[in-house]
């Protein structure tokens, strides 16, 4: 006689067995619910981190856009700026290279922020390219993970005599490393 048959033939009570079975079922269901809760709650910090990485890139691009489109950012091919610690000086140097040789060697940009509340802004890096027609492409991405959230600021140059201005500026997705966005 098999174990099942014996059990069925048994005339003693089964409340203990049923209670233990119920306990087992409840344990399994509880474990499944706990795993589900844990997975859901872990998704939130990850989402905040991903958004923060994007905001770090977006913030850097925001400031760059502001500088490129500033009223005093009219580049002179004669090189009017003497302050070497200015963005305008860097761009004028590039523009002069383009005028002389038709192209300019790109720059790698390293961004760092200081100040109260800046700690959450993760490090970003960028690439500064100037095309033969003086069009400017500035790509920015996260350094960790390297190349994540790459965005490009594409600025169309308007050349008038020896003066270059950038008024038509747009943001688009980018791939780091190449000349174009």
């Amino acid at each position: 006689m098999s174990l099942v048959q014996k059990k069925l033939a048994d005339r003693s009570g089964a409340s203990m067995v049923i209670a233990l079975l119920l306990f087992l079922v409840c344990s399994v269901v509880s474990a499944m619910i706990l795993v589900s809760i844990h997975q859901n709650s872990m998704r939130m910090p990850q989402m905040v981190e991903e958004q923060q990485q994007y905001q770090a890139v977006s913030s850097a691009l925001c400031v760059l856009k502001e500088k490129v489109t500033a009223d005093d950012m009219a580049l002179s091919l004669a090189g009017s700026t003497t302050d070497i610690n200015s963005f305008k000086y860097v761009l004028e140097q590039m523009a002069q290279e383009v005028k002389a040789s038709g192209s300019a060697q790109p720059y790698t940009l390293r961004f760092s922020v200081d100040g109260e509340g800046a700690q959450a802004l993760t490090p970003v890096r960028g690439e500064l390219h100037m095309a033969g027609n003086y069009d400017l492409t500035i790509k920015v991405c996260n350094t960790q993970p390297e190349g994540a959230n790459a965005l490009a600021l594409v600025c169309k140059a308007q050349v008038s005599g020896d003066t270059i201005t950038y008024s038509e500026v747009r943001v688009q997705g980018a791939v780091m490393g190449g000349d174009g966005a």
Binding site: V90, Y107, T108, R110, F111, V113, D114, E116, G126
Partner: peptide, 8 residues
């Protein structure tokens, strides 16, 4: 604060 950009 300030944003510092270095060029390489």
């Amino acid at each position: 604060g300030k944003l510092t950009v270095t060029f390489e």
